[in-house]
Nucleic acid binder design. Structure first.
Lengths: 191, 191
DNA sequence: CTCATTTCTTTACCTATGTAAATGGATTTA
DNA sequence: TAAATCCATTTACATAGGTAAAGAAATGAG
């Protein structure tokens, strides 16, 4: 479980007492490629820590249209964050794009520790702040950049991912169709 | 200053001791229509609480292109949140769209209170979580909805705002040009 | 009230991207 | 190996939205 402790310590130092309380909540879980960690429409109950593998988080509407919001690569927290926080049903799903290994905890128990562990609540604050900063950045990119700039940015931000996942997942992350991504790739290759 | 206390209490109850420490940091400020609270390129130093007026937060690139990320209406915290958190220069600016009244505090002093006031750090955590949820929602809307659906959503979410600010500010919030917004408005009016 | 400025709308044209369908390569399954 | 499936690419066409410029309407200053 050292993966979790190390990650938390990068946010803020976690005391041994706090870590003792956290660690008893963590259970190992394997997720086979294609399996879901969370699905839309359900109330999220668990928070996960991905220490091996790739997970996509995506929005799916009633027509079956899918938009890949994010690719999670280890190390990273995963889970229906908005659902956990607001206690409303998940709008998004998370699915393994490779075989994955996680530590999983009940979020209700986890977040109850905030009351007795200010250092953990601090870590949670810092994590939420970082999530916000990431989302704000993504928002700007979606509006200000066109699709081929977003594609090149994706290549920089996830350099190892392009060969590991399907093109249509990348297209979906960029907010375009596989057709358009193919056009962009052709144009870029012509130089 | 009760506006600030009341707002914090909606996040989590704030003790009298904590409030005493916060309140000495707060200074009143007037912002005339058109004035900036923060500007891009600078390091943010202050956090503000808007209790009267309208402020736009926007991104501006090197070509002068502007994208209105958000409209702040009272009551609301304002400030270069990402800049404050990450201690990097602001990417965004915030400008008064009407005469505004704020309470302003030095963020460094404010956030140092987290160490001695767990209830304030809790409020900060909850606020960051809410900001994240808002941004995630906005991201989905930008990708999944087309411009006229986003326009109708804007009308619902800011019902009082449409008559108070310029069309081109709304267009910029929607991620389109005033030309396109005008086309959308014409089409909607024809029904 | 009048003139000047700003904002909104309209038009013509152009581009990025979507849709649907066909093709061919790659991978999986029988 | 053969068949079936999945995936990336390509093509033709349709549409949302951008750009530039002009005109109309609203706002503001003197």
């Amino acid at each position: 479980m050292t993966e979790v402790k190390d990650f938390l310590d990068t946010l803020t130092p976690i005391s041994d007492e706090t870590w003792a309380k956290i660690s008893v909540l963590l259970k190992p879980r394997l997720l086979k490629k294609g399996a879901f960690f969370i699905e839309e429409g359900q109330l999220a109950k668990e928070i996960g820590f991905l220490y091996q593998g790739i997970i996509r988080g995506f929005y799916r509407n009633a027509d079956g249209f899918e938009y890949n919001k994010h690719f999670f690569t280890n190390p990273s927290f995963v889970g229906g964050y908005a659902s956990l926080i607001t206690n409303t049903p998940n709008q998004i799903s998370q699915q393994a794009l490779s075989d994955c290994q996680l530590w999983v905890a009940n979020f209700e128990k986890f977040s109850r520790l905030y009351l007795s562990c200010p250092d953990l609540e601090r870590a949670a604050r810092i994590l939420a702040e970082r999530f916000f900063v990431q989302k704000e950045q993504r928002e700007i990119e979606l509006v200000v950049l066109d699709a081929d700039q977003r594609y090149r940015l994706f290549q920089q931000q996830f350099p190892q991912l392009e060969n590991q996942i399907a093109q249509y997942h990348i297209a979906s992350y960029l907010g375009i169709t596989p057709t358009q991504l193919s056009r962009i790739r052709r144009k870029l290759a012509q130089r």
